[in-house]
Simulated assay, not measured.
Amino acid sequence: MAGYLVVAAVGIAGIVLFLAAMLMRRMLSPVSANPVRLTTYESGVDPVGLHWGQVQVRYLGFAFLYVIFAVDAVYLFPWALVLRKADLGAASLAEMGIFIAVLLVGLVHAARRGLLRWLP
């Protein structure tokens, strides 16, 4: 039961800290409603025209590469730290081999599409 109390205490502390930060932001932030502050602002670009702007498809490739490398880092580093334990055995090695194979398929796909070239 003590383990649940610790988890509950950490959750309550997180909620209290979040609420305190929001309250302090509300109390300390300056309030001045002028037309410039109320305009739409996205990524440093002022909105132009009446319709949505089209995003270039090449950014999807960058997102694809980010997901490949982020997932790679999220799973490989903890696995490498736990690998020192002798009881992991061949099953863990086979699972990580499958994981790396899936990542390599993604990297080969990115390389075939030309996403890994330095110059356009």
Rank of each mutant, 00 (worst) to 15 (best):
A86M: 03
N34W: 02
I15D: 02
A111R: 09
L60A: 12
A70C: 10
L93R: 09
R58D: 12
V45M: 15
G14I: 09
H109P: 04
N34D: 13
R26A: 11
L38V: 10
I68R: 01
A73Q: 01
V74H: 00
Q54H: 11
D72M: 14
R84Y: 07
S29A: 15
G106I: 13
E95Y: 05
L19W: 01
V48F: 07
I98F: 00
Y75G: 07
A90R: 05
G14W: 02
D87T: 13
S29H: 08
A111K: 09
L104P: 06
L83E: 08
H109F: 12
A110W: 02
R58W: 05
A33Y: 04
L17W: 01
G106Y: 06
V16P: 07
V108R: 02
L103A: 08
D87I: 10
A111D: 04
F18M: 12
L93W: 08
V102E: 04
F77S: 08
G89A: 05
G97C: 06
V82G: 06
D46T: 14
G3E: 14
L103S: 06
D87R: 05
E42Q: 10
L107H: 01
F99V: 03
I98Y: 01
V36G: 01
A101M: 07
L103Y: 04
I100N: 04
H109K: 00
I98G: 15
V6H: 06
V82T: 11
V7R: 07
Y4I: 13
E95I: 09
G49C: 09
A111G: 10
V108H: 00
P78N: 05
R25V: 07
I68S: 05
R37N: 15
A101S: 03
Q56M: 08
G49F: 01
T39A: 12
Y41V: 14
I12K: 05
M1N: 15
G14K: 04
D46M: 13
V7L: 10
F64H: 07
G53F: 03
M96W: 05
H51G: 12
A94M: 00
R84D: 10
G61H: 04
V102G: 13
F62N: 08
L60I: 12
V102I: 15
G89Q: 05
G3S: 12
L60P: 01
V74P: 00
F18Y: 00
L104N: 13
G49N: 00
G61I: 08
T40E: 13
G11W: 00
L103G: 07
M27T: 12
A91W: 02
H109I: 10
A91M: 09
A90Y: 02
D87C: 02
I12T: 08
G44T: 02
A70Q: 03
D87F: 03
I98C: 00
V48Y: 00
L50G: 14
W79F: 10
L103M: 11
W79K: 02
D46S: 09
A2P: 09
V36E: 12
H51E: 11
Y66V: 15
F62A: 13
L88V: 01
